[in-house]
Simulated scan of single mutants.
Amino acid sequence: MHKVTDRDIQTAKCIAFEFDAAVRANDGDAANKASRTFRALITETNGENGSFGSFADDGAGTAITAALAAKAGQVPHWGQNGLFVLETKHGRALVDFTCPLDTCSSFGFTAIDLGMPFISMTGYRSHFYAEWPPLSVMEAAAAVFCEYAEAGEMVNIKIEYPQGRNNSLPDFAKPSCTAFQGIPTQTDDKGQIGFQF
């Protein structure tokens, strides 16, 4: 069982800011140092289990990263998780960014304007990112998204995937495109399909 205190969370925030500054300054040594310090803090605060299970539901790592997360809709910095809207010349996406202060972050791109071409026919694409470029998280997300788009991978989203997607988007990421966004359907207990209005 973890024993994370407010002081631990403040320490973790300081480490995360150091990590972000190191990444933005292209200082790999400082970024690695911050990463090691963060892991040591998690191991220490995870109680008698040490690093084992530290990112389980009740682990110290889970509690600390949740406390560090950016507010919904705000762009996180390196060392934070966050959910934000990315706008590029190729379209918009809801980005779910995970940055555990180690060598591999991840971007999850979800289509917002479902009637527009996207970098995946399902309306979702994940990307694991093993670089620490001297860029902001927004700039890195845009570079990844545009790389997919400019590689000729923009496609229409297949109609079976968008159903219910619009209703699951957070308020800060509502569609702005008036093009066709899909018609939600429902199936009754006899298998009959009908439109929802």
Rank of each mutant, 00 (worst) to 15 (best):
T45L: 02
T45W: 00
T45S: 15
T45D: 01
T45E: 02
N46G: 04
N46S: 04
N46L: 01
N46R: 01
G47Q: 03
G47K: 02
E48R: 09
E48T: 11
E48W: 00
E48G: 00
N49V: 00
N49D: 12
N49H: 08
G50V: 02
G50M: 07
G50C: 08
G50Q: 06
S51R: 02
S51H: 03
F52A: 15
F52S: 12
F52K: 12
G53F: 00
G53S: 05
G53W: 01
S54I: 03
S54H: 04
S54P: 05
F55S: 09
F55K: 04
A56W: 06
A56Y: 08
A56G: 15
A56Q: 12
D57T: 14
D57F: 11
D57C: 06
D57K: 12
D58L: 11
D58W: 04
D58E: 14
G59W: 04
G59H: 08
G59M: 06
G59E: 10
A60W: 00
A60E: 04
G61C: 13
G61F: 12
G61H: 14
G61E: 13
T62Q: 14
T62I: 07
T62E: 10
A63C: 09
A63L: 13
I64Q: 08
I64L: 10
T65Q: 14
T65W: 01
T65C: 06
T65S: 13
A66K: 15
A67M: 10
A67P: 08
A67K: 11
L68I: 09
L68E: 07
L68G: 08
L68A: 13
A69I: 06
A69W: 02
A69V: 07
A69Y: 01
A69N: 11
A69Q: 13
A69K: 13
A70Y: 01
A70R: 05
A70W: 03
A70H: 05
K71L: 12
K71W: 00
K71R: 12
K71E: 14
A72L: 11
A72W: 00
A72Y: 03
G73E: 03
G73R: 06
G73M: 07
G73Y: 05
Q74S: 12
Q74I: 03
Q74D: 15
V75D: 06
V75L: 06
